[in-house]
Write a protein that binds this DNA or RNA. Sequence first.
DNA 1: TTATTTATGACAACCGGTTGACATATGGAA
DNA 2: TTCCATATGTCAACCGGTTGTCATAAATAA
Lengths: 324, 324
Amino acid sequence: MPKLEDVAKLAQVSKTTVSRVLNRRGYLSKETIDKVNQAVKELNYHPNVVARQLYNNKTDLIGLLFPTVANPFFGELTANLEHYLYQKGYKVLIGNSINDPQKEADYLDQLLVKQVDGLIVGTHNQGISQYHNDNLPIVAIDRVMNQDIPIIASDNYAGGKLAVEHLLVQGARKIIHINGPQELATPAQKRRAAYEDVMHDHHLQPITYEVDFNISNTDKLKVFRQIFVEHPDVEAIFASNDLDAALIMQIARERRLRVPRDLLLVGYDGTQTVQSVWPQLTTVIQPIEFMAQKAVTVLQNRLHNQATQSEYLLPVQLHVGTTC
Amino acid sequence: MPKLEDVAKLAQVSKTTVSRVLNRRGYLSKETIDKVNQAVKELNYHPNVVARQLYNNKTDLIGLLFPTVANPFFGELTANLEHYLYQKGYKVLIGNSINDPQKEADYLDQLLVKQVDGLIVGTHNQGISQYHNDNLPIVAIDRVMNQDIPIIASDNYAGGKLAVEHLLVQGARKIIHINGPQELATPAQKRRAAYEDVMHDHHLQPITYEVDFNISNTDKLKVFRQIFVEHPDVEAIFASNDLDAALIMQIARERRLRVPRDLLLVGYDGTQTVQSVWPQLTTVIQPIEFMAQKAVTVLQNRLHNQATQSEYLLPVQLHVGTTC
DNA sequence: TTATTTATGACAACCGGTTGACATATGGAA
DNA sequence: TTCCATATGTCAACCGGTTGTCATAAATAA
């Protein structure tokens, strides 16, 4: 692997001159520029990125910490984040933390140390202390970290309201909601608040099941089956996300419940993948692309020490399919 | 951000000793070890990764170049790759190249230069020349690059055969296949070969539509609608992948064709996402996790200069749903 | 003719950690 | 008493660039 010195030798100029040509600084004649470029091409020389990173004290890398890109919501989010970050000259390092707080802490430990210039996080684990780090600009998506870390989220309260009110309009009364554990501080809890508010407004009893996002589908199915055992008269379910809605659908089939006749179903997220494969699902669409764009903008503000708000709420949209 | 020297000062030892403690080499007394560790903790010191990378001439980063993690196949593949790579001590840098050969070339240019220790690629663009690079270990997934680059793929021929033979058993005769452009050298072309072989064996006329993986859903829908215009008597479609199958399904609904009564449909990939959301789809399941694991193993062999085969074929499985 | 701009080189410090060479001191074993 | 393993320090080179300081020389302008 050729280095700067080799280029200098071949072009018969000094290291300094080569560096000047590559970085366009100082006075340079056309001839030397050509000579150097010629040598660069001949040797197929590329400056060593790591050496530059060391001197410049930045890597142009942004870390993304999310549960898993196997989930279409995080997959699409990651794809969009990568897109916008690439436009700004950053590359993307990913860390999937699903179900493994140790792994998340590990990643943090390593990334916080000059490996990345900034971090965008949306993990679902609790009690990671390293986030209290002033050195590294961090932005959270759909996750409450601490005061210093700005949050990008869709308008979960509005989304919850849209979903529940739609269910009520469709005539459902016994509506059950699924959400993550309350200890986990996520903006998604606002859907629960919306759900409970709307139910109370209609003098209905809210019933919320708390299900950990990280558990396996098999375990989720067990919990969801329990819902139908404990509430055989359930008329509608407002699920945490579209994949959970799919599991509910699976159970509905097991129990020979026809959707929407016997059971109404609303999901959440509205990823393009699920929209494409299961357009019948009524769901609340989060503006994934917009969230990614906003996260990148806010992160860049942080990187440039510009002021940012502590929270950014983006609008959601109800997609009405045939499941309710 | 504290550096090694600061730790040395605080612990009242030399830089060398600190380095010795951190890297466990040479003779060390328990007291100094404790003193150093104490100072490390007190300062919250972490060695600068980039400096280490420069000296060691490796980054412990592996680049993943795929079309987009927004697609569940690549999302799940990426998640699995990340999992296995993490286990081996590598971090993951992603690059999504969809629909943008320039971006792919860009990534390559930058990653080939000591930014990553190795590369796993599965992009769908053509004519990228930089892959002829001897410096960097590369492994390809489901993509033919050049002789030096080992390929991990599922058994596409067997998969194609399974799908088509199942369609025939179900009574279909006019079966249309969708695949990528033939110029694009991918193992997926073997499905086409299998399809055409089986059709010929049954004295049936194979009809293959070539559709670029990278085009938008809107454009794909246009092409797929054309299929039904040109072949109104089509009885079955063997799609390139599950998402394409979903689009076909959409068109079937438009045309009031009932699946499987009026149209049989087989997909390809069998991602957990699609399996979960649309279990009714009959499809060929690629062993994504196994492919990821194999890719990581083979890459590591390359990294350690151990011999590797030029191709690894992994078994597929037919999932029979209700779409055929 | 003199001053200034343009063009290039040599050199060293620096980014932050790693490593080898060499010196030195202590304690216990032979 | 001598020898050696143990324990720590100093110093400098190195990884591969970047940048500032000085020096030098030719070309151009005043």
